[in-house]
Computed example of a mutant assay.
Amino acid sequence: MTTLNGRILGQAERATRAVLDRLLARSGTTFEQWVAVNLTAAGPLTRDELLAQMSAGLRTDPAGHVDAAFAAGLLTGDVALTDLGRSRYEEISAGINAITGQIYGDLSPEDLDTAGRVLLQVTARANAALAAA
């Protein structure tokens, strides 16, 4: 039996992130730019909302990364996807879908549901510990 711990979580995150980084590199998109594009594609945001969501997810000040996404022509001034941003979103999303199928495709839905619930609970507890500190 394998017991879930920080090392296992970290190894899984770093391995999947390396696969994502390889995909992103093909399009010249940084991880942080991808986060900005992905969040913007999900719905209209103000710059402040985008910064707040990125800060919460990345645990860092994202202002420079958002500026880089604007400079790369991925986002418009009113925080919407440009044509290039929409194209990049579709290209990277298709690549992620293919990778997801390779990595998760043969795992049972029950195992995926359990893992998802556990990881959400671990994340919530870690966030609570950060807030309490």
Rank of each mutant, 00 (worst) to 15 (best):
E90W: 00
V19K: 04
G95C: 10
I99H: 12
L75V: 06
A98E: 09
P109K: 11
A56L: 07
A41V: 07
A25Q: 06
R86S: 14
L4A: 04
R88A: 07
A132K: 09
G116T: 13
A56K: 07
L39W: 01
V118E: 12
L112F: 09
A94W: 10
A80S: 14
R26E: 15
T30G: 12
R117H: 00
A25G: 02
A80W: 09
A18T: 09
A52W: 01
V35M: 15
G105I: 05
R86Q: 13
D106R: 15
A131W: 03
D61L: 07
T114P: 00
Q33H: 00
T30M: 10
A115D: 07
S93M: 14
I96H: 07
Y104C: 14
A52T: 06
L39T: 01
T40S: 02
I8G: 05
L24K: 00
V122C: 00
R7Y: 09
M54K: 03
L24I: 07
Q11I: 11
G105A: 02
P109S: 09
L120H: 05
I99W: 12
A98P: 09
L107A: 14
D83H: 14
T60F: 07
T46L: 02
Q11Y: 12
R14K: 15
L84R: 15
E32D: 08
R7T: 04
S93W: 11
G85V: 05
I96R: 15
R86E: 14
L50I: 03
I99L: 15
W34A: 04
A133D: 08
R125Y: 12
G95Q: 10
Q102Y: 11
T76S: 05
L75M: 10
T123N: 11
N97A: 15
N97Y: 11
A94V: 08
T60H: 05
Y104P: 05
A18D: 05
V79R: 07
G77M: 08
D21V: 11
A126W: 10
L4F: 07
V37D: 01
D67S: 06
Q11G: 15
L4S: 06
N38V: 02
L112D: 01
Q121H: 10
A72R: 02
T40N: 05
A52N: 06
V66Y: 02
V122G: 11
R22S: 05
I103D: 04
L75P: 04
A126F: 00
S93R: 12
A98D: 14
L130A: 10
A15N: 04
